[in-house]
Design a protein around this nucleic acid. Sequence first.
DNA 1: CGTTTTTGACCTGCGC
DNA 2: GCGCAGGTCAAAAACG
Length: 291
Amino acid sequence: MAAETERPDPPASDCRMASSMSDEQAKTLEAKLTQISEDNRRLTETIAYLYASQIARQSPDDAPDSPPPPVSRKRRDSLEPSNSGDDANASSKAAHAVESSLSDEYEGTCRRIKVSRVCTRIDPSDTTLAVKDGYQWRKYGQKVTRDNPSPRAYFRCAYAPSCPVKKKVQRSAEDSSVLVATYEGEHNHPCPTRAGELPSCATRGGSVPCSISINSSGPTITLDLTKNGSGGVRVLEAAEEAPDAKRLCQEIASSPEFRTALVEQMARSLTRDSKFTDALAAAILKQLPDY
DNA sequence: CGTTTTTGACCTGCGC
DNA sequence: GCGCAGGTCAAAAACG
């Protein structure tokens, strides 16, 4: 989403005007940033709206549809007793106090800590537990948990000292290429870069697949925003005990509103990607007859 | 030299 | 009460 922000260098054709265009370029970049933020906001709202509609249809009550599992250990402040990469189990264990990160509209009447989980596919050889989400984080601890050989890293928001948000990052026990970041709390300040509304997709030239997870009252759903065979959104995973959640996710992914917004977003990203336009120009050039 | 990361120790809650 | 496990603290090390 933030590919533009990582391309500060102007195209070669613009270099000759660089000195006189600096202000204008700055304005253009600012406008682009605003546009990207707006796009992201619309996407988020679309998902939130569809999700809320589905939740309202399925369970008018705040109580989750699944009975509370036999949790063997529950801490006072830990809404996710065992992340451990086993999203399905972890989600069900945290069912009673977890809510969606999509929108504040879905907060219940009681005060609860907002918890959301984001799964990001990374290079398996990448040993850093870094999830680029646009915020600044300070690591304050690391622990090896019982049911996952990969260590869990603990981060606090470093942008604002008073910000209560914490983040836990751990590789999935099942798939070491999947990084699971669990966010607790809400930022009490704006995002410093506005680049973190979605995890690291398209910010690395599209080489890294992108996925977002929706965790609301239990089940974790992962949407793969990269292309699949049909060019649509694919449901990467959903909790075993939450077939409804998976179906809901597929509904959202296939809804006209979501698809339209997604297509617009992808089109914008592609047309702004210099590599894409270069490749397109090269392809067109190949089709031209030689004179 | 200030900031950030690492890592062992400590704290707390829960089950037995 | 004890042991276990997750979470946090803080001194030391590393880094820029």
